[in-house]
């Protein structure tokens, strides 16, 4: 286990503060892509507060960041029950595509928007957050095989959607 996490588990406030600084950006962006930038700060801070309260239960079976993502994922799900809609621009850049791009970005964002919540989640976790299938499975609380299957179907749908629009270059 990371020595910094071990120190934080023993109640070392400096170590806890250092852990927050180290992981905050990733957790904040994780939250922003799911609940929007308006709520991201609150959810990210709530994630760290929850993590500190539950730190004794962390056994190091996954990386500390993946464990934080698991907490953030649950809090984001709760936060998403609120009626405020999440803007696509919170998760994706919608500026016009450069000449070198393989496809039109607006079409891509539209295609991503048409994915189901489960499929979009695995795309975000694997492609954007950069988690392995196993890590994504830990965050979602599902088997790794489910992540693999969802990713396959998500990409198949994205390809079909983009081909239907005729936007791939």
């Amino acid at each position: 286990m990371d020595p910094l996490v071990e120190r934080a588990k023993r109640g070392d406030r400096e170590a806890t503060a250092e852990l927050v600084r180290r992981s905050y950006d990733a957790v904040y962006r994780f939250c922003a892509r799911r609940v929007g930038t308006e709520s991201a700060k609150d959810v990210a801070q709530e994630t760290f507060l929850t993590a500190c309260r539950s730190l004794r239960r962390y056994e190091g079976r996954s990386s500390f960041e993946v464990w934080l993502f698991g907490i953030a994922h649950n809090l984001c799900r709760k936060a998403k029950r609120s009626p405020t809609p999440v803007s696509p621009t919170d998760a994706w850049r919608c500026e016009p595509t450069t000449e070198e791009s393989w496809l039109d970005r607006r079409a891509l964002v539209e295609a991503l928007g048409s994915l189901s919540g489960e499929h979009l989640e695995v795309v975000l976790l694997h492609e954007v957050e950069g988690l392995t299938y196993e890590e994504a499975a830990q965050v979602l609380g599902v088997p790794a095989g489910t992540v693999k299957s969802r990713l396959h179907h998500a990409f198949a749908k994205l390809r079909a959607s983009l081909q239907a629009q005729g936007v791939t270059r």
Binding site: S101, L112, L124, V128
Partner: peptide, 25 residues
């Protein structure tokens, strides 16, 4: 290519509130 485009399209908002989070903890 699709994976590459998705990664390029992902937004990277500037995080805010890290010190506040440390203070709250």
């Amino acid at each position: 290519m699709l994976g590459l485009e998705i990664r390029k399209a992902a937004a990277h908002p500037d995080p805010v509130g890290v010190e506040e989070a440390i203070g709250r903890i």
